[in-house]
Write a protein that binds this DNA or RNA. Structure first.
Length: 782
DNA sequence: ACCTATCTGATGGCTG
DNA sequence: CAGCCATCAGAT
């Protein structure tokens, strides 16, 4: 085990490592290692290469490391539009001498962590909120004076520090910022809601403006909103908690309480002028809400555990799986004397075939369905086939190439047996060596070993205790990391990206689920749906399904994998759950009532499982979710499915509510994320040369931008559809109640429920309640 | 800047 | 003007 550090950063040729030291930290400066590697054999074959290195005024050393030669460089980047000199040198060697270089693009921090077995220490955490002059629009946010700040430490909420601007001048703001930086000294990690886009850049810009010198990189800046969103996507129950990601909305969803009533950020200047105590209260409530959200969710602690497991520092960048996987794999590679090819930049996208999704074959209610799924499917495939970038044998084919002259196209393609000591991926026919173990499978073995270690420890501890929770979190962290490996190998941005490897993982999954479905059919089991790693079946008893799953594990998969040459079999099917009633709407969209989950019988208050339906979506209006939620509850209630006629009064009541009742903004508000910067939405041109209309949320975003509001990438745009001839949309903030009620019913609210009812009762005509808008009155003929 | 598959709505172009 | 298709965008 290496030494523990809180953080590290580099600039030029200096690397600074941050370590706990009493109540504060000590900074340890060392030389930043900007190296790359070449194979010793390549250098021996082409001695000119060494001469090139020696001649360079930037090369500071050539170190013989057995199989490898490490070439050290002084960091220099004369032109900010170009790569640093050592990366350019690597490219030159590759182009001129056709010799591969390794890891020229690795940052000195990662190199230091990887080569020295550095462990990630637990940072002292605090939650920060600032208030700025509300008269300045978001687009000019760094011109806004900071009016107040509050820092809340971890724990019970009693550790609070605060500052408020004394007077509206630069000297007072400088004092305020000095006090803030002084207060931060006790902490290492700073959480702020939307901090990356607001608090952090403003604090830095204002400090610079005041002439304050310092090194902000000694702290771990972690945007709480970013982390919450990432972690909560998979955890959220209904779409309600996905609709808005403001601190107030999330606090209401998670804690049941929001910000201070009657105060909004838009009043900060007024409050500062009239009631500074209240401004501070407001600011303090926000900072403490973050502390409470963490106490409830544990997302930051989970990230911490994940970062400790992968040797990544827990700041905003540490949230990204690519960095976590990269550090973990490079560390393992270092222990095994491996290096990875230099990445000079983005090499282009080459998509690949993914999972198998079966078109649902059932109509209406399905009773007594059994669901089986593969345990950790993709990790188990990587392990069984020993799939890894370096175990892949692109030179070995199992089939003759289909690229051949046309006059030979009538001949069947020749096939070749899988060579000894190798295994062949299904469908892609890519070949992998069985020995030595690939770095990817070794990493997964390690991840799954650690997961099982913490699971066992957890089982031995009293449930709910701090130790139990810690073991639980560590087990989840290893599961999350293990599941992200496949995605990283499949990402063209990753240094471990090999398209064929990622595709082979997915296609072996396709093959396994298809073989399993065929085997089930052979036993008279009716499979009516399946997606990626699961199959949904009827036509057999629970005992028969248990027996089928047992047989798959004991006989089917061992045989199939042996035929493909696998030296190992980690594939495992499990009987996950039963539904006593399920309605399939389409692929990836269904609602079902559990009979049991992993053998545990469902109780009267077991909630139905909802997948993909609008009720789960954060971008539809509240009325859409509420009507569908009510229908879901009714469909899933009672000992038998209800009569379709019972839904008629429900539909009619909702219809008249939408068309004639009172409607509040939240009822009809639509919320969509800007998935890219506003500038990147290309304006399409119509045939007549004029511009086509842009998507509604983009139109609204352009309007908001003109008003100086935050419309950056990732921001949710809230709007509603205004009553009128064409489809016109307005920002939620412009709400006057003039909503297009016909549009709300015909397009927003009824169709999602109509589709669900049509799926449950295919013979009933549910369209008759759809039309609401009176037909247009034709203009009288002239 | 972890994958692909799928569904849905807005928009525009075309057809009868 | 309804119906169909293609394209883009977003969410899951």
């Amino acid at each position: 085990m290496g030494e523990r550090f809180v953080n590290a950063y580099w600039r030029g040729n200096t690397l600074t490592a941050v370590q706990h030291d009493g109540d504060g930290v000590s900074l340890r400066e060392m030389r930043a290692d900007h190296s790359f590697f070449v194979r010793a054999a390549d250098v021996r074959a082409k001695p000119d290469i060494v001469r090139q290195f020696r001649d360079s005024r930037y090369c500071t050393g050539i170190v013989d490391e057995g199989e490898w030669v490490r070439v050290r460089w002084r960091y220099e980047r004369p032109d900010p539009n170009h790569s640093p000199v050592h990366v350019r040198a690597a490219r030159f060697i590759e182009e001129q001498y056709k010799v591969p270089t390794f890891e020229a693009d690795v940052s000195p921090v990662r190199r230091w962590v990887v080569e020295n077995g550095i462990e990630v220490d637990r940072p002292r955490r605090c939650y920060l909120d600032i208030e700025t002059d509300s008269r300045v629009p978001f687009s000019k946010k760094s011109q806004a004076r900071i009016l107040a700040w509050v820092i809340v430490g971890e724990g019970d909420g009693s550790d609070v520090q605060a500052g408020v601007l004394e007077s509206d001048d630069d000297a007072a703001e400088r004092d305020l910022l000095l006090a803030l930086w002084r207060a931060l000294r006790r902490y290492d990690q700073v959480l702020a809601w939307n901090g990356d886009r607001f608090d952090y850049p403003i604090i830095l810009a204002r400090s610079e403006r005041c002439g304050l010198k310092g090194e902000p990189r000694r702290w771990l800046w972690l945007d709480h909103l970013l982390l919450f969103r990432r972690m909560n996507v998979s955890a959220a129950e209904s779409g309600e908690e996905k609709q808005s990601m403001t601190l107030d909305a999330v606090a209401r969803a998670v804690l049941g309480t929001g910000k201070l009533d009657g105060v909004t950020g838009e009043q900060s200047w007024e409050l500062w002028s009239t009631n500074r105590g209240r401004l501070l209260d407001y600011c303090a409530v926000d900072a403490d809400l973050m502390r409470q959200i963490e106490a409830r969710t544990g997302y930051i602690e989970l990230l911490q555990t994940l970062c400790e497991a992968t040797h990544t520092f827990p700041d905003t960048f540490g949230v990204q799986p690519m960095g976590q996987v990269e550090t973990f794999l490079m560390r393992l590679g270092h222990q095994r004397g491996m290096h990875f090819a230099t990445r000079f930049g983005f090499t282009g996208v080459h998509g690949f075939e993914g999972a198998f999704v079966m078109e649902p074959t059932s109509r209406g209610f399905v009773r007594d369905a059994h669901v089986a799924d593969f345990a950790r499917l993709y990790p188990s495939i990587i392990l069984s086939w020993n799939m890894s970038p370096e175990t892949y044998r692109p030179d070995v084919r199992l089939k003759e190439s289909d690229i051949r002259p046309a006059y030979l196209s009538h001949l069947p393609l020749k096939t070749f047996p899988i060579p000894d000591g190798h295994c062949g991926a299904a469908l892609t026919d890519c070949v992998f060596v069985n020995e030595p173990r690939g770095i990817l499978s070794e990493a997964l073995d390690e991840m799954l070993r650690l997961r099982s270690h913490w699971n066992k420890l957890k089982a031995s501890l009293p449930p709910g205790t701090a130790e139990w929770k810690d073991a639980d979190r560590r087990s989840s962290a290893y599961k999350i990391a293990a599941n992200s490996f496949y995605g990283v190998v499949g990402s063209p941005f990753s240094r471990f990206y090999v398209r064929e490897v990622a595709e082979s993982v997915a296609q072996c999954g396709v093959w396994l689920i298809k073989e399993t479905i065929e085997a089930a059919k052979g036993r008279g089991i009716n499979v009516f749906y399946g997606d990626t790693d699961s199959l949904f079946a009827t036509g057999c008893t629970r005992e028969q399904f248990v027996e089928f799953v047992r047989w798959c594990n004991a006989e089917l998969y061992p045989r199939l994998l042996k035929e493909r040459g696998c030296a190992r079999n980690e594939v495992e099917l499990a009987y996950e759950k039963g539904f006593d009633r399920i309605v399939m709407v389409t692929a990836k969209r269904y609602v079902g009532r559990y009979s049991h989950f992993k053998g545990t019988a469902a109780s009267a208050d077991s909630k139905p499982e909802v997948k993909g339906l609008e009720w789960k979506r954060g971008d539809v209006s509240r009325l859409t979710r509420e009507l569908q939620g009510e229908v879901i509850a009714r469909l899933m209630a009672g000992t038998d499915p209800p009569d379709p006629a019972t839904f008629v009064p429900v539909i009619e009541a909702w219809r008249s509510r939408v068309l004639d009742g009172s409607l509040e903004l939240p009822d009809v508000l639509i919320s969509k994320r800007l998935a890219k910067p506003l500038t990147e939405y290309a304006r399409r041109v119509k045939k007549d040369g004029s511009f086509a209309a842009e998507p509604p949320h983009v139109r609204v975003a352009r309007l908001l931008k003109a008003r100086g509001q935050d419309v950056g990438e990732g921001v949710k745009i809230e709007y509603y559809v205004v009553d009128g001839e064409e489809m016109t949309v307005a920002p939620a903030s412009d709400w006057t109640g003039n909503v297009d009620r016909f549009y709300v019913w015909e397009t927003m609210v009824y169709p999602p429920t109509e589709r669900l009812l049509a799926a449950a009762y295919p013979t009933t005509d549910w369209r008759q309640w759809e039309r609401a808008r009176p037909p247009k009155v034709r203009a009288p003929k002239a």
